[in-house]
Write a protein that binds this DNA or RNA. Structure first.
Length: 572
RNA sequence: GGCGGUAUAGCUCAGUUGGUUAGAGCAGAGGAAUCAUAAUCCUUGUGUCCGGGGUUCGAGUCCCUGUACCGCCA
């Protein structure tokens, strides 16, 4: 049995994500996980929340809560929304878990032993009032260059000159507004990525068939300018994973934590360890997914992420894994996405522009969003979400082509034969032609899904739905029924089986509707078709069914206008 | 300022390593059917493939250049 490890980029903890974030990693990852399971793979699908760092601390402070409490609450919120979208994670973890603490410290220790970590001193701004060091963007002051009063610590937005926080005149903390700041000497750990440059370069060259987007971004970081730079992996914060060398203390690093980008990808591994604990499994049960010396040599590991995350997954995280000198599983295929734009502009979390995950589920069932987003996933370039396109596409594809097919077949059968699969009639040329068409299209569909060519797969699935309508149109059971009822019965028996086949093939995209279809047909048989001819005979004559409710109600013009207005501006 | 991406039918997008009359879905037009969520099916595209150069027997597809939009970085 093939084994597939799937991870989705982990969403940051502060706040609810918008649809652009969803389609950029979690949703396509879920599609692939569902498909792989349906094809009989043993799948481990991991996601988590990314909880450390200054933004989380500030969001918690704003909410008036301890950061740990805030993160726990927001984790639950994100977990519920993931469930709402039917994201089928085997585990949805937290980067703040004990497992991640241990693993992160372990990796740091291994890297130190390998001579890949440097201690370097730097001068940074400390705020006495806030009791903390301030990252560049949390310091503002007057620009020494142009006199602009709200220049940030890293750059003046007025004259665009790059700044060092210590250059600012009358600097102040943007957290508290305090001007009681001083410059302190502080030591930090740096991961010597530059020493791993050739190894990473060779590793990327050894990958076959990665999307151009992925490799071009990685190559640029490797070769641009002075090449891959060393990166600081620690911070002067309270909230995070304490700096340790494995189990041992790290002299000089007391009170410091690892920087969020260092521990976040390690959470993929830790999340699998969390899964094992939650399932009451042994250590070996998760290690067989991640250690090539403990059973992971036959695992295929696929990552999903937006293009902004590519450098971390092609360089930083592999640097951690390869640099450890241990046989950890590295990614085999990295699927990256462009951005989804909203109605002529960007989705914006800060301005509340666009549709957020909670709002989306308030107005429509998950399947509507899943279908539209997946069939328009920004694979080769940025894509545009517009309400009119959403309305016409969803109405056409889901309501008219698929939903109405189910409706017309089941209702016709009920009217002429009752709610039971009718008996009689044999397959003729039309049926043979349909089987031939479907066999070819199924083959293509699988090819696209295997290659994670999502838009093409969606197009093929839609064509499979259309083939059913074409068949009905040609077979015209409403017509044959008048002259040859047995023939009509045979046609409808085939059409009812077609509904079951559609449920199975569509389930990765629209799991709820798929379940509703199977349920209406009174069957649990959701086996992936090995042979179309056989699959179209699963429901035998005499098998009872019920006419389901409308699968997909259409989106009305009023709804569309209402939503377009509601989500255009600021989030309530 | 540096870097990257994108510019293809009214709209959203496909177009493998350059090769014959540039495609799909939607929208539009015409027709068929009437089982169905007024849902389906068939037919229908005279597009300067952003502009300008160049390489080539041949370029949407490669090179140079200009323009527009969008990101990323410091």
């Amino acid at each position: 049995m093939p084994r597939t490890l799937i991870t989705s980029a982990i969403p940051y903890i502060n706040g609810i994500k918008h649809l652009g974030n969803l389609i950029g990693s979690q949703l396509p990852a879920d599609l692939y996980a569902r498909y792989a399971r349906a094809r009989g793979h043993e799948v481990m699908f991991i996601c988590a929340t990314d909880e450390h760092g200054t933004p989380a601390e500030l969001a918690a402070a704003k909410a008036g809560k301890p950061v740990a409490d805030y993160c726990a609450e927001m984790w639950q919120v994100q977990k519920d929304l993931a469930d709402g979208f039917r994201l089928s994670f085997d585990h949805f973890g937290r980067s703040s878990s004990p497992q991640n603490h241990r693993l992160t410290q372990h990796f740091a220790g291994r890297l130190a032993e390998a001579g890949l970590i440097d201690e370097r001193s730097s001068r940074q701004v400390y705020s006495n009032a806030d009791g903390r060091f301030l990252p560049d963007r949390y310091i503002e002051g007057t620009c020494p260059n142009c006199g602009f009063e709200d220049a940030r610590g890293d750059q003046c937005d007025n004259c665009t000159k790059q700044l060092d926080p210590t250059d600012l005149i009358n600097p102040r903390s943007t957290i508290s507004g305090s001007t009681d700041l001083e410059v302190r000497e502080t030591k930090h750990l740096y991961l010597k990525q530059s020493q791993l440059k050739d190894k990473l370069d060779a590793w990327i060259d050894s990958q076959d068939g990665w999307p151009v987007l992925t490799t071009s971004i990685a190559k640029k970081w490797l070769h641009d300018g002075d090449g891959l730079q060393d990166r600081g992996i620690t911070r002067d914060l309270d909230w995070g994973i304490p700096v340790k060398k494995g189990d041992a203390d790290w002299p000089g690093m007391e009170g410091k934590v690892f920087y969020v980008w260092f521990d976040a990808p390690i959470e993929y591994i830790a999340g699998t360890a969390e899964w094992a604990e939650a399932q009451g499994k042994a250590e070996a049960d998760w290690r067989r997914w991640w250690r090539t010396d403990e059973g992971a040599e036959d695992v295929r590991y696929v990552q999903f992420m937006g293009k902004d995350n590519v450098p971390f997954h092609t360089l930083s995280f592999p640097a951690t894994l390869l640099g450890s000198g241990e046989p950890w599983k590295t990614v085999d295929y990295l699927k990256s996405f462009n951005y989804l734009n909203y109605d002529g502009g960007q989705f914006s979390t800060s301005r509340g522009r666009g549709v957020f995950m909670d709002q989306a589920l308030e107005i429509l069932p998950a399947d509507y969003w899943r279908w539209w987003l997946l069939s328009h996933v920004p694979e080769s370039s940025d894509t545009e979400f517009t309400w009119t396109a959403f309305q016409t596409d969803v109405n056409k594809d889901l309501a008219d082509v698929l939903g109405n097919f189910v409706s017309r077949v089941t209702k016709f059968c009920r009217a002429k034969f009752g709610e039971v699969v009718p008996e009689g009639g044999n397959w003729g040329a039309q049926e043979e032609a349909l089987i031939k068409t479907l066999t070819g299209r199924l083959d293509t569909y699988q090819l696209h899904m295997d290659a994670i060519e999502i838009r093409k797969a969606a197009g093929e699935l839609r064509a499979i739905w259309v083939a059913g309508n074409e068949y009905l149109q040609e077979a015209a059971p409403w017509s044959t029924f008048k002259t040859d009822p047995a023939r009509a019965a045979g046609q409808i028996r085939l059409a009812l089986n077609l509904i079951r086949l559609y449920a199975v093939l569509s389930a990765p995209f629209i799991p709820d509707a798929a379940r509703a279809m199977l349920s209406a047909l009174g069957t649990e048989d959701d086996a992936w078709p090995e042979d179309v001819r056989v699959a179209l005979a699963v429901l035998p004559a005499g098998h009872g069914f019920t006419v389901p409710d409308v699968l997909f109600a259409k989106i009305t013009d009023d709804q569309r206008e209402d939503w377009a207005e509601r989500f255009a501006g600021t989030r309530a």
